[in-house]
Amino acid sequence: MNHRRNGIHTLGLLAILVLLALLLFSSVAQGAGPEPGLTLQAPAQGTLGQTATVQSTLLALGGSPVSGATIQFFSPASFLSTSGEVFLGEAVTDSSGVAVLRYELRSDNQVEIIARFAGNASYGPAESSATIAVQGSTQLYQEDIGVRVPGLNVWLLAAILGGVWSVYFTVFVLVSRIAREGVRARAI
């Protein structure tokens, strides 16, 4: 097992070295590195408010992963008559050439996502895109304002006021009794 793996490793190392030499040569010759392959995997469907995991893989010409490369993610959008690419964020490829963006779906329609590799000394720029069809119509942005205290509402105010005014009414009744008593006393 070990032996075999070692063999593969040396083979891979050799291949990379050759590739690097080739790259170096070609870049010197052409002024730019070869365009690596960039693929973007995104779920075809998504729900509004859900966090989608968008995965891009950067592979060299020979299909070997490119690690440590910065991939930037964009989404073309238009807002108030201004169109442009919204920068969503960036991620660095891991040893298998994979860069992952976790992205909350906020637009409820077709969301196009573009992954872009700007290129470096070894590789030329690369780009790939994918589209997510977003479903749903939930209101996402809510602000939690205020504190709701049960019972602390207009009825409390009404109860207090009602209490006071009912005393006023009682007094009114008492005054009318005084009046009635007056009529009675005069009759006697």
């Binding site: 201004t82 169109s83 920068f87 969503l88 209101q139 996402l140």
Partner: peptide, 21 residues
């Protein structure tokens, strides 16, 4: 920039960007 927090998007007329970020 003027934007919509619901869609998390804003613009100043020159560029469009994601508000939260």
């Amino acid at each position: 920039y003027y934007g919509d927090l619901e869609e998390d998007i804003a613009t100043n007329g020159a560029e469009v960007l994601k508000i939260s970020k």
